[in-house]
């Protein structure tokens, strides 16, 4: 009980802090200097219609590289934590599990390619629409999840996933380095011509980089899902 009282007291203090922040908040009516720079210069310098994408991929591209790395480490740690130590939990035997059902099997076989295509659309058009590599990667992982749900005996090819992941990561860094050599800096997007605003092949290498990020993030999320679901390696060896 005393723990609860302390928690409430702490919350009261934090709440007071928040209330003072809220009371003192004056909304801007003009863009601040940084935002103004981005809003003015993105279309001309970067050629991307989506300013957020320009910031994520080019202006602050190094941060995104760090983010992708963090995500990679997270996926690796999830895999490591779950793989080490005692043998896995005693699973519900497969025979006792209800079968998937014809409707879901047929439906997923019909929808999975479309979902993957939607994911590709989202990350390829990252510089024109609200999409981007992270969203598209999540959608691709969701498509893989549907595959996994509809056919629990289907194994993810862990090898293919990790090859895809490393390859796209390498290419991402490689494009960054090429930017140093042939354009004006690391991850500079003017490696390719920036084209006309609003076309698919515009904004230099942004679509390429975002596609690579999309593939990498999709692979990472898929491996996370596969690791956290019951269908993991130990289970497979029992099956086969």
């Amino acid at each position: 009980m005393i723990k609860r009282a302390i928690a409430l007291l702490l919350l009261l203090a934090v709440g007071a802090l928040f209330a003072s922040l809220l009371a003192g908040y004056v909304p801007d009516s003009e863009l601040n200097q940084t935002a103004r720079y981005y809003a003015e210069r993105t279309a001309g310098d970067i050629g991307a219609a989506n300013i957020v994408t320009a910031i994520v991929v080019t202006y602050r591209g190094l941060d995104t590289l760090g983010e992708v790395t963090v995500l990679f480490i997270t996926a690796a740690i999830v895999g490591l934590v779950l793989a080490q130590g005692q043998p896995a939990l005693p699973h519900t035997p497969r025979q006792l599990r209800p079968p998937v059902g014809e409707l879901l099997t047929t439906g997923s076989r019909m929808l999975t390619p479309l979902i993957l295509l939607l994911g590709v659309y989202v990350f390829v058009n990252g510089h024109l629409t609200p999409g981007g590599g992270f969203q598209g990667g999540a959608i691709i992982a969701s498509g893989m999840l549907l595959l996994l749900l509809a056919d629990p005996l289907k194994h993810f090819s862990h090898q293919l996933i990790s090859v895809l992941e490393s390859l796209s990561g390498l290419l991402f860094v490689g494009i960054g380095v090429l930017g140093v050599l042939f354009a004006s800096g690391f991850l500079d997007n003017r490696l390719l011509p920036i084209g006309n605003l609003g076309e698919l092949f515009s904004a230099g290498v942004i679509p390429v980089i975002y596609s690579l990020i999309g593939l990498k993030v999709g692979a990472e999320f898929s491996s996370m899902l596969a690791n956290l679901s019951e269908i993991d390696k130990t289970d497979k060896t029992e099956e086969t």
């Binding site: 076989r109 999975t112 390619p113 993957l116 590709v120 390829v124 698919l200």
Partner: peptide
Amino acid sequence: DVLLVGLITALIITLLFRNSLAV
């Protein structure tokens, strides 16, 4: 350019999901 990217993507997905169904 849209058609080109679509052609490549659709081809890759078709080859990866050979036993899928379309409507």
